[in-house]
């Protein structure tokens, strides 16, 4: 006999809740418009999966290592006293170039552009690039000398375990 008042109060509260907290409505018309875009035939390179996987390889995480590989080139100066000295100096220049390329890749390049306009015409346009970096643990993988050009292959490995915390700050 005492169940009826309880049932009535539960029903009344349910009706009130339904009015005060209406369920969110999904705008089906908008969804229909966006759900079926015209998909032209995309080439294989433009597939989002392949781009994501490529980015994942270049992104540093706690568990992976990123390798930066460059090839530096150097030539011997004109005023050398022997071919051996020329070769040694060419190698130094190649190492310096390889370090510069590593600096470009890892630390980035600062670019400054200046245009000089005279009589409503550009008379001089200057672009100056600058790199400032400290590079550690660069490995020389290979060296070769051919036709007066010395090439040095160099690599820097960044370990996520060590560098992720510092670089993600």
């Amino acid at each position: 006999m005492k169940i009826w008042p309880l049932l009535v109060t539960v029903f009344a509260s349910a009706v009130l809740m339904a009015e005060t907290c209406p369920t969110p409505k999904v705008e089906k018309s908008i969804q229909r418009k966006t759900a079926k875009p015209k998909t032209p035939a995309m080439p294989a390179i433009m597939e989002p999966k392949s781009i994501d996987s490529e980015n994942a390889q270049c992104t540093l995480s706690m568990r992976n290592k990123v390798h930066f590989q460059v090839v530096g080139q150097g030539v011997a100066p004109v005023n050398t006293i022997s071919p051996a000295q020329a070769m040694a100096l060419a190698k130094r220049a190649a190492i310096a170039d390889a370090y510069r390329q590593l600096g470009e890749k890892i630390c980035g390049v600062r670019i400054e552009g200046r245009d000089l306009v005279r009589n409503m015409m550009i008379s001089r346009s200057t672009v100056r690039t600058q790199i400032n970096a400290i590079i550690r643990n660069a490995k020389i993988l290979d060296t070769r000398f051919k036709n007066g050009l010395y090439e040095v292959e160099m690599e820097v490995t960044i370990d996520g375990k060590r560098w992720y915390d510092r670089l993600s700050r």
Binding site: I95, L102, S125, T126, V127, R128, T129, N132, I135, A138
Partner: peptide
């Protein structure tokens, strides 16, 4: 010593391309 640490500074200038 270079492997241990090296400071790099590089400049490049382009004028009228």
């Amino acid at each position: 010593l270079q492997k241990s640490a090296i400071w790099l500074r590089s400049y490049e200038t382009y004028t009228n391309l």
